[in-house]
C-alpha cells in the first residue's frame, strides 16, 4: 500500500474512533449515568497501602458490601477529621484481610470489622477468590502498575464509559438475553444502578434504584436465589476454628496497640429474619465479642440506627448511610474510641 493510502486509513480510523467514543460517552451521560471507578485489585491495593497512617489519622474498615454501602466516607471524614480506609469487598469474609493485617507488624491503627454472619462464618465466600486476587496484587504490584493506576484514575474521573463493571465489552455482552444453560450457576448480574463505586471505594445506589421498585426486586430476586441454593452448614469444629483464628488475629493487633471494634450493620425484612434464624446472635455475635474481648455494635441495640429499611433488604440507601454514619460515630465514641480531630456536629 502506498503510504498515502495508509495515511487515509489512519485518519479515517482516528475520526471513526473519536466520533464513536464521543457519541457513546454523550449517550451515556444523557441517560444520567455517572462516573464510576473500577473497584478491582489496583484500587483495593491503593487503599491497602494506606493502612499505616497513625491511629489518630485513620480508621480501616474491613468486611463485605454492607460496610461499603452503609459507611458514608465523606460524612465520616468530615466529622471525625480522620481518613476512612475502606478495604471491605462485596461477598467476602473479613477474615483473610484481618489475618493479613494481623501478620503485618506495621499495622497498629484502628480497625472496624463488619459482621455479616453468613459471610463471616463461611469457609468459602462467593467472591473470596477476588479478594485473594486483590491481596496478591497488592503484594506483587510493580512500579509500572502503580503508574498505570494513576493514569487510569485520571481517565476514569473524566469518562463515564470507563465503567468496567457495567460498560465493558464483556459486561455489555452479559446483558444479552441469552437463555441460560441448564445446570450452570453463573455470577449474578446486578442492575447497573445498584452498585456504583467511588474512588474511596464507597458503594452507593443511584437515585433511580432507590425509587424504582422493579430494580430493587431484581436484587431481591438475586438474594432469594442465593438463599435457595443448598449450602453445607459449618461443623462445630469449623466454627471453633474460625473463632480461634479471629481471636488470635485480634490479639496480635491489640498487642501492638491497635484498636478493634465489631459492627453488625443493618439489614431488614426477610433477609434479616433469615439471618437471625440461621445465625442466632447468642451463638455467633456474642461469642465473637466474648472471645476477642472487643467492643461491638449490634445495630438493633441502638434506636438511632435500628430503624432503617433497606431497599433490597441488605444495604442502606445513600441518605440513610449518612444518618447511619453520623450516629455510628457517636456510638463508637461511647464505646471508648476517641477522635482527636473530631468536629462538633452543628
Amino acid at each position: 500500500m502506498e503510504s498515502k493510502n495508509l495515511v487515509k486509513a489512519g485518519v479515517l480510523t482516528l475520526i471513526l474512533v473519536i466520533t464513536s467514543i464521543a457519541s457513546w460517552e454523550l449517550y451515556l451521560r444523557s441517560k444520567g449515568i455517572n462516573i464510576a471507578y473500577d473497584d478491582g485489585d489496583a484500587l483495593w491495593s491503593d487503599k491497602r497501602a494506606r493502612v499505616y497512617e497513625p491511629a489518630d489519622k485513620a480508621t480501616v474498615f474491613i468486611g463485605s458490601s454492607r460496610n461499603k454501602f452503609d459507611l458514608d466516607i465523606v460524612t465520616w471524614q468530615s466529622i471525625t477529621g480522620e481518613n476512612a480506609i475502606q478495604l471491605a469487598v462485596e461477598g467476602t469474609s473479613p477474615l483473610p484481610v484481618l489475618d493479613d493485617l494481623a501478620k503485618d507488624s506495621d499495622f497498629k491503627g484502628k480497625l472496624m470489622i463488619d459482621v455479616t454472619e453468613g459471610l463471616f462464618f463461611s469457609l468459602s465466600t462467593p467472591r473470596g477468590a477476588m479478594l485473594k486476587a486483590d491481596m496478591d496484587y497488592y503484594k506483587k504490584r510493580t512500579p509500572a502498575q502503580r503508574f498505570s493506576f494513576e493514569v487510569n484514575h485520571l481517565l476514569e474521573s473524566q469518562f463515564v464509559f470507563l465503567d468496567k463493571n457495567y460498560l465493558s465489552l464483556n459486561s455489555i455482552l452479559e446483558n444479552a438475553k441469552i437463555p441460560p444453560r441448564y445446570g450452570v450457576y453463573g455470577s449474578p448480574v446486578f442492575p447497573m444502578d445498584f452498585n456504583k463505586s467511588t474512588f474511596n471505594r464507597q458503594s452507593y445506589m443511584t437515585d433511580r434504584f432507590v425509587t424504582d421498585t422493579n430494580l430493587q426486586n431484581q436484587v431481591k430476586a438475586i438474594w432469594a436465589y442465593g438463599a435457595s441454593r443448598p449450602t453445607t452448614p459449618l461443623s462445630i469444629y469449623q466454627q471453633d476454628s474460625i473463632i480461634a483464628t479471629v481471636k488470635s488475629d485480634v490479639a496480635k493487633i491489640k498487642a501492638r496497640g491497635g484498636q478493634i471494634i465489631f459492627v453488625r450493620t443493618p439489614s431488614s425484612g426477610p433477609f434479616l429474619s433469615k439471618e437471625k434464624t440461621g445465625f442466632p446472635r447468642e451463638k455467633y455475635w456474642d461469642i465473637i465479642l466474648t472471645v476477642t474481648n472487643c467492643p461491638g455494635i449490634y445495630f438493633e441495640d441502638y434506636p438511632a440506627i435500628a430503624h432503617f429499611q433497606c431497599p433490597e433488604f441488605s444495604h442502606l440507601k445513600p441518605s440513610d448511610a449518612i444518618v447511619f454514619t453520623k450516629n455510628l460515630i457517636n456510638i463508637i465514641q461511647e464505646k471508648g474510641w476517641s477522635f482527636p480531630h473530631k468536629q462538633t456536629i452543628q
Binding site: 493510502n5 485518519v11 480510523t13 471513526l16 474512533v17 464509559f161 468496567k164 465493558s168
Partner: peptide, 16 residues
C-alpha cells in the same frame, strides 16, 4: 482498512 482498524481500536477501548 480504516473500518477494520477503527473496529479493532474501539473494541480494545471498550473491553477495558
Amino acid at each position: 482498512l480504516g473500518l477494520v482498524w477503527s473496529a479493532m481500536l474501539m473494541l480494545i477501548i471498550l473491553s477495558q
